[in-house]
Design a protein around this nucleic acid. Sequence first.
DNA 1: TTGAAAGCGCTAACAA
DNA 2: TTGTTAGCGCTTTCAA
Lengths: 363, 363
Amino acid sequence: MVTILEVARKAKVSITTVSRVLNNSSHKVNKRTREQVLKTVKELDYRPNALAKSLLKKCSMTIGVIIPDISNPYYAEIVRGIQDAADRAGYSVLIQNSDLKAERIIQSVYELREKHADGVIFAGGVFHENNLISAMKNLSSRAVVIGRFEGDLPAVRIDNEYAAFIAVQHLVELGHSKIAFVNGATDSSTMADRLQGFMNALVHFNCPLRKEFVVMGALTLSGGYAQVKSLLKKKQRPSAIIMANDQMAFGAVKAIKEAKLLIPEDVAVVGFDNVPLCSYFEPSITSIEIPRYNLGQAAMELLIELIAGNAPKEKIRWFRVDIIKRQSTVPGFGIREKISLLENDIVSGREILKTVTIPKPVH
Amino acid sequence: MVTILEVARKAKVSITTVSRVLNNSSHKVNKRTREQVLKTVKELDYRPNALAKSLLKKCSMTIGVIIPDISNPYYAEIVRGIQDAADRAGYSVLIQNSDLKAERIIQSVYELREKHADGVIFAGGVFHENNLISAMKNLSSRAVVIGRFEGDLPAVRIDNEYAAFIAVQHLVELGHSKIAFVNGATDSSTMADRLQGFMNALVHFNCPLRKEFVVMGALTLSGGYAQVKSLLKKKQRPSAIIMANDQMAFGAVKAIKEAKLLIPEDVAVVGFDNVPLCSYFEPSITSIEIPRYNLGQAAMELLIELIAGNAPKEKIRWFRVDIIKRQSTVPGFGIREKISLLENDIVSGREILKTVTIPKPVH
DNA sequence: TTGAAAGCGCTAACAA
DNA sequence: TTGTTAGCGCTTTCAA
């Protein structure tokens, strides 16, 4: 590897001068000297050693991201938002998969500290606040959470209670009252919040709350399939089912079709995430849009502020969610004339909300 | 940040001794001294500064991965394979998205060099060999490619020519001869190879090769939809279509259904990747299984060897591909009795191959 | 068995 | 305008 010393020697100047040229230092450098240095740098294809620089400046221009699993498209898109914002600011991103194991999260924090990450972003839950905060030590002042966190870290999040609320609201408006909810594991705060919002909405709209209509399953195709399969076997079957994500909703559709029931006439289905496939599935799937990329991006921007030593403007940065209505809930959706009208009908959840009173204030 | 000096002072030993204890140096350390050091390390929650260590040892235990886009599930799963193998060996992974832009790839290489990455893995194409190799400088001896590369780097790959070949073979066995191929952009070697395999197979099976049956499109739902839409408008329409990935295949299904044609009776569809959704779609999609996670894992393992200074056992490590047959090609697939039988019928492509002669040896 | 000191490649305070 | 030098936190050689 070429070092600054070799450049200096070849250019017949001191290493200080090379450093000054390369860093556009305010310290004056003679124009011809500067050119000479630049020429030599190019000739030797010299690149400064970021490790040495970081050691001295005490900032590595690297941040860490701790997520459950990068191969989960939900997190992959959040990460992409983080990376793009990081790139723009000159940061590199170190990704750690936790597979939702608390000890791996702690382990990752230690690694990040060793590599002197300038900050860290957590997404996807399973935090043991106290352990985590103490494991972070001084890193904890440069940490951002995407989602809910019981501790004292700045966060970027969507209102999951509200998201579940508008899902129910949409179904109630279509005349449903026997609404089931297939959730992920409620040790995730996201899932817990959605459950809360679901129940609040049932109360608000005077729908019966049946215990057997609230079940939990793996957030996968087969998880959704299995849970809905057994839901449909109950003597009282739901007329609508809200699934915790779109993968589960796709699984649900398979189960409902196998039971020879019609969607949405016999059973309506709502998903979460609004992945692109929702509009290509048959039936197309009504889903709650979650701005994943934007969440990641905002988290990174917030983190940059934190690293710069600025206090966050707000403790929690909220993002709005919308419901995208499609065939899986709206009977006759997609019939010729209506397509263009409805495809664009991205109903603003917040605005609808203004017209109703919900039982519990949304933040 | 706590440094080794503080530990040394508190433990009343030299920094050398602390270092020796922490690195399990072969140099003898008195048992009581060792315990004292360990105790102090714990008390102060000291973590060695990896930056300083790297600077000295000239290895950062970090590798770079350059891919088109982490939010593309195809690459996300490769990356997960890389990360898991990296974790096991104590490496961190820096991910760079190129969005298939050559200048961003070069830019990423420079960044990786600055951060003193110990090695680099490329996946997803658009390489300009000479520029890339020279940009890497000495890094080029510790670089692995996933996929094809015209230069001289060790690679981990699947045989895309063969993959396309077995797709055609499967269709021919079902009686098709009017077979179309919707490919991605052929500046990707993967796509170029598949096209080659497709054409070889047509020749081999005496199918007519119609120019208008080979088209290119974006590797997305809408890309597949649009291309198939226009394919079906041609006077001679294909009886089977091979799509470059499953997303495109899902889009194709929508286009075919909208044309009021039956799948597979009027038009059969084959995808690539075999994402989980293939078996949940209606119809379920016949697809070529690609071992993404394994590719990533193998690439990382190979890179570790390279970093250790060992020459790779083989210049190219090949992975096999299989075709998973489902409703989108097999008429009557999924009729009650057959389900369990066929769902498990993961036909080994290689074995089938043994029974036929293909026009060009597969390595 | 322990420690002093050199030095990895760089920046910045200070000197010339 | 240029250069000398200290030192970031660590490992390792050499000396004790």
